[in-house]
Amino acid sequence: MSQTGVGVEGLPPARPGEGAPRRALAPLRREPAGRGRAWLSRRSVQQNLAGYVFLIPWLVGFFALTLGPMLASFYLSLTDFELFTPPEWLGFDNYVRLFTDDRRYLRALRVTFTYVLLSVPLKLAFALGIALLLNRGLRGLGLYRSVYYLPSLLGGSVAIAIMWRQVFSREGLVNQILALVGIEGPSWISDPSYALSTLVALAVWQFGAPMVIFLAGLKQIPQELYDAAAVDGAGKLSKFARITVPLLTPIIFFNLLMQMIGAYQAFTSAFVVSGGSGGPADATLFYTLYLYEEGFTNFEMGYASAMAWVLLAIIALSSAVAFLSARHWVHYSDV
């Protein structure tokens, strides 16, 4: 089934046979010897030209809409730019100010790190748990899979965030259920002690994407291994810990990386649930929310650009750490 390949491109191949095509390509790169350079270049120019023509839409998109603005934003991050007046050169002052003279920035960092550290592992654990349940050969698996995936499709939408606001409000669904068992729940979204945790819950609820990928990974684990382990007298727990988890580590790593990068950039849920303020009392002041406020409410575009670049650095650094650590716990080798 095609699901085995969902979203795992870019990872080293999990099976031995899949590496072979790369070798088959090698002879093509060898150019015929003894011919003149002119022939070579004319021919290759012609060949490449067609390629570049087909690439134009992407190239235009990449240079005009991605790389260009990124470089412009880096330049602006070194200036005092208030959107309407020409930027004034500052050097690294914006970056210095972020870390030495902005309490709210440090608050935003703390909120974002907390969110990433809580939401990513919880979401992955939840996704894996559901994937394991769905991997037991249920009837109507396709239906369940779709149903569980649904929240992820809706997840980024404003409507869901508004619904979340209702569910967790003082008289919302959660508190009504708690009231049935005699517990008086707090006002989840308007109490600084709980506000962030409701957003973590919202993120965990959107476990569909990693779940589908986990499910694909689980289906790749050969049944023989479990049979062999059963013969050796291994119990369920031991099979999970010694077969499932080790063979799933490349998938876990991939999901971890994608979810972490997404979590650092979380915006919509906090923006809608807090009414755009990051409140109550800055308890949900996500990094991107503060960036948006500085840029579009206070017109501090230079400062906001500096923030964006620091976020890029933080994500790059976190990814690098993840890749370095992967050497010790991710097993690409096959059985």
Partner: peptide, 12 residues
Amino acid sequence: PGDVQALATGDD
């Protein structure tokens, strides 16, 4: 108290 008012200080 804060948690009650926080629900009402939006623009709605």
